[in-house]
């Protein structure tokens, strides 16, 4: 049991930090530009595919640096030549633009790499068990993932609080018009944030593609969850995104272990119900199966009752 708990906590951390890497960029983009970027998860996927491709040529470590850079440049270009053009048609058009981009990137990936999953494996230099606890192993790659994401969290925090550009970004988060009025080049800041956010997604992709699986549907699988993270965490709050990522990852990891149905739970407190009849399905739902719906339930409730999110600074 102790072993199970420890490893579940570790699994939560690994998955949670991956989510955080993805959502940190998105939350900045969303709260600054008001754009619900549907293509964010697509940049994550591109990061994974670029990472795979570069790895086959130049090795994992080059991929880890080059792939996020490429994705970042692509992101900046999308902002400069796409989003800025549609900006004049309003938020709906911007949002739909990113949705269209999502489809194009997914198909583009099919076009270039085909529909099958890529043989994207843990690099040899990280493919060993870091430590063995009881008799479970914790792989070095997972530890490396944790390391990278913690580094990103600290790095982002420092950039946002200690640098000039970070201060402008922070100001633009809450008072975009004011920042513009002060003579800062807000469009350029937008482009940078969009590019930077995409690069972070790309980095998450390089790692996540190996950790999970590199395939054309990977964007669709993670996309909605990332939205949940930024909504639950709150607009413009990195800490919120961090907390929400861990929370959601924990929900999904721990729910798997709980194979109790409502009937069992009621049985514990001494209530027996007739588990047939019209509500049969509801009585028989196991907690382990509720895992996938909890994030969305969270998100809807949060939006209805506390649109600011857990640690958000403002609404919309």
């Amino acid at each position: 049991m102790v072993e199970y708990l420890i490893f579940s906590v570790l699994n939560t951390l690994v998955l949670g930090m991956l989510l955080f890497m993805l959502s940190s960029g998105l939350t900045l983009i969303f709260s600054m530009m008001g754009v619900l970027n549907f293509a964010h998860a697509s940049f994550y996927m591109l990061g994974a595919y670029f990472g795979y491709q570069i790895t086959t040529v130049a090795g994992f470590w080059s991929a880890l640096i080059i792939s996020p850079l490429l994705v970042g440049i692509l992101g900046a270009a999308v902002e400069r030549y796409g989003l800025r053009t549609v900006h004049k048609y309003g938020h709906v058009a911007e949002l739909l633009f990113t949705l269209g981009l999502f489809f194009i990137i997914e198909e583009g990936v099919n076009l270039i790499w085909g529909r099958n999953a890529m043989p994207n494996f843990i690099p040899a230099s990280l493919d060993f068990p870091l430590f063995t606890l009881f008799n479970s192993e914790f792989s070095a790659f997972r530890a490396f993932m944790l390391l990278i994401s913690v580094a990103i969290f600290i790095g982002l925090y420092l950039v946002l609080t200690r640098t000039r550009i970070g201060l402008i970004i922070q100001a633009a988060l809450t008072h975009p018009e004011g920042v513009n009025a002060l003579g800062h080049n807000v469009p350029a800041v937008f482009m940078m944030v969009f590019g930077g956010g995409s690069a972070l997604a790309g980095l998450a992709g390089v790692i996540g593609g190996i950790f999970l699986i590199t395939e054309p549907s990977m964007a669709l699988t993670l996309g909605p969850i990332v939205f949940v993270v930024i909504v639950v965490g709150g607009m413009g709050s990195l800490t919120g995104a961090f907390v929400a990522s861990l929370l959601l990852a924990g929900l999904q990891t721990f729910a798997v272990g709980l194979e109790y149905s409502l009937v069992d739970l009621l049985g514990i407190i001494g209530v027996t119900v007739n588990a047939d009849g019209i509500l049969r399905d509801i009585w028989r739902i196991q907690l382990s199966h509720i895992g996938p719906i909890l994030p969305y339930l969270f998100m809807v409730l949060m939006l209805m009752f506390r649109p600011k999110g857990l640690l958000g600074k403002r609404e919309n």
Binding site: L36, H91, P224, V228, I282, I285, I293, M299, L303, N316
Partner: peptide
């Protein structure tokens, strides 16, 4: 945006609970 997000959440919520019922 709030409406859009809620609709997205409800959509995913119902779709995910489909396998439960």
């Amino acid at each position: 945006t709030t409406f859009a997000l809620i609709s997205l959440g409800i959509g995913e919520l119902i779709a995910a609970s489909a396998l439960l019922l």
